[in-house]
């Protein structure tokens, strides 16, 4: 004998009427999608502008690996933080707090490490020459361009998720997208000078992350 325990509530009625099956969100699927996108970008960019001409030698050079790994780790850490933060049960969990702290420590250190390696080694004129601003601006523009697709995809994921710290999720998504853009560009760019990488790659990454932090949160309210 069914007994109606719950008096009618118009809001609950409306929500039940609106119920349709949903697919629980899976971060593994999201990571796979972004990885596929980055792989496609590498291929497309290599087809359009080519890999760096000295690729075989570059692969022997520690600086090339330092550059790609730095950008790759910033991207991976930031993406992990962004995607994990989309579950309200995890957003505030202590282990995620450690990831935020790790990110706050690793990003500036990784970016500054180029400077720390040897910026002091040469005079001002040589420094300017090393910064090669024409290539540098090209680098900025390209990293920005290559970050756009990952940023769109990540912003969609963040919007679809339920971050209870929207500003942080936005910043992490921006950082991840920028790191991915820089990672892709690193296969084309033939500058391995750590100072150059710190200034131009670092500038691009921080700029894009900052923009995401400013622009995304208003789209993420829920």
């Amino acid at each position: 004998m069914p007994i109606d325990l719950h008096p009618a509530d118009p809001l609950i009625d409306a929500l039940v009427a609106d119920l349709h099956p949903v697919q629980p969100r899976r971060w593994t699927r999201e990571v796979a999608l972004v990885a596929g996108l980055v792989f496609a970008e590498i291929l497309i960019y290599a087809a359009l502008r080519g890999l760096r001409p000295d690729m075989p030698q570059a692969m022997q050079s520690p600086m090339f690996w330092w550059k790609t790994l730095t950008m790759g780790s910033i991207a991976s850490l930031a993406m992990a933080a962004a995607l994990l933060s989309l579950d309200p049960a995890i957003t505030r969990a202590p282990r995620l707090a450690w990831l935020w702290r790790g990110l706050a420590l690793v990003v500036p250190l990784a970016l500054a490490s180029g400077w720390l390696i040897d910026a002091g080694a040469s005079g001002a004129a040589a420094l300017l020459a090393r910064l090669d601003w024409r290539d540098g601006l090209d680098c900025l523009a390209n990293v920005l361009l290559l970050s756009l697709a990952p940023l769109l995809v990540l912003a969609r994921f963040v919007k679809h998720g339920a971050s209870t710290r929207p500003e942080r999720s936005a910043l992490a998504a921006g950082l991840a997208a920028a790191g991915l853009g820089a990672f892709v560009f690193a296969f084309h760019c033939n500058h391995d000078d750590p100072l150059y990488v710190t200034i131009w790659y670092g500038g691009a990454v921080l700029g894009i992350a900052g923009m995401a932090r400013l622009l995304l949160p208003r789209l993420l309210r829920w």
Binding site: V22, P24, P88, H160
Partner: peptide, 18 residues
């Protein structure tokens, strides 16, 4: 946001977060 709850995890913390 009901799709953001992972059925393999407890419901309480998700509810509390929201």
């Amino acid at each position: 946001k009901r799709h953001t709850w992972d059925p393999s995890r407890p419901f309480g913390p998700w509810l509390a977060g929201i």
